[in-house]
């Protein structure tokens, strides 16, 4: 249970959904939550964004999938997942029982599969849909829609028409212009935006003289990307009216507070959970401690302070 001696109120409302904390576990780094159930005190988590889903499931990429860089991790998982139906039947009930709000992260290869996935999720008790138009690891896995604002607009408006669930669109930092992208998604009916997904990156194995990853390019995450992610969140928060979820390299409460001061309603913690499986909980506890120390009672008092 949360300590009662803290005066800090961590509750936030994201797209109409009340969250017990502004800290959300990022997609692809937290499974569907069960794996961390004996590690993290779930009272400190506002939501869990599950592993990225596609309508029919995917095998993911072959070859090397993980590569460490200074303060970073390049991954080439390639949206391996069991499919939307499996998620709904086998994972969602247990995920809901963990306590935090359940966010379904939905990717797709064609607009039709995005639409069908969204329709299926609409009929469940999932709390939010996070529309992934930004996975750099699958050619047709969303990134195609995440680069150009025009394409994003189409997929977002079509998915919007398929669901009444709160729809958070997850943006790629590889977008041609992040502000235009954010405005296009907002105009197309997104209830909120989350950013950033991973940065397109690569590595070369000098012994074989070949790219490390079979797909050549893969996605960079972790502390290395944080200042750039923060800049993008700041730009987007300046431009849009819908709530923004900030992420990219957050590992400590101080990191998270920067994103909140840049205007984020909530934050996500991803790669940090690998270096420290308690990271989500520690970030939330640290925010509460900082609030107490600085006489801040709710995050509304500091949100966007730097804008």
């Amino acid at each position: 249970m949360r300590e009662v001696y803290s005066l800090a109120d961590l509750h936030v409302t994201l797209c109409g959904v009340p969250l017990q904390s502004p800290v959300i576990a990022a997609s692809g780094t937290f499974g569907f939550g069960q794996e961390f159930s004996r590690i993290v005190d779930m009272h400190w988590l506002g939501a869990i964004s599950g592993k990225g889903l596609t309508l029919e499931g995917k095998a993911g990429n072959e070859g090397e999938r993980l590569y460490e860089t200074p303060a970073g991790l390049i991954n080439s998982i390639g949206l391996q997942n069991p499919g939307v139906r499996h998620f709904i039947e086998q994972e969602l009930p247990a995920m809901k029982r963990l306590g935090p709000a359940a966010m379904a992260n939905l990717g797709g290869s064609t607009i039709d599969t995005y639409e069908e996935g969204a329709r299926l999720l609409d009929a469940t008790d999932v709390d939010l849909i996070e529309l992934n138009i930004s996975c750099p690891n699958v050619k047709a896995g969303g990134i195609a829609y995440g680069i150009r604002a025009e394409s994003a607009k189409e997929v977002v408006s079509r998915v919007r028409a398929c669901t009444k669930k709160p729809l958070v669109v997850k943006l790629s930092p590889n977008a041609e212009n992040i502000t235009e992208m954010a405005l296009a998604c907002e105009a197309a009916g997104a209830d909120g935006l989350s950013l950033v997904n991973t940065f397109q990156a690569m590595a070369i194995d000098i012994s074989t003289r070949r790219p490390v990853f079979q797909n050549v390019f893969a996605g960079l995450s972790g502390p290395a990307i944080r200042p750039i992610a923060l800049r993008m969140v700041y730009q987007v928060c300046k431009a849009v009216h819908v709530p923004v979820v900030g992420l990219g390299g957050i590992a400590t409460a101080e990191d998270a507070l920067e994103f909140i001061m840049a205007g984020a309603t909530a934050v996500q913690v991803g790669t940090a959970s690998f270096a420290n499986p308690h990271a989500c909980e520690e970030v939330a506890r640290g925010i509460a401690a900082w609030m107490d120390k600085n006489g801040v009672k709710t995050l509304d008092e500091i949100r966007g302070a730097a804008l």
Binding site: G28, G31, E35, L66
Partner: peptide, 22 residues
């Protein structure tokens, strides 16, 4: 295999069996 989480959460350690199962 290289592992990021060791928990089954990241799918960084997925391998294909002889039969092609993951």
């Amino acid at each position: 295999r290289k592992m990021a989480c060791g928990l089954g959460a990241c799918l960084g350690c997925t391998c294909k069996t002889e039969k092609g199962e993951l």
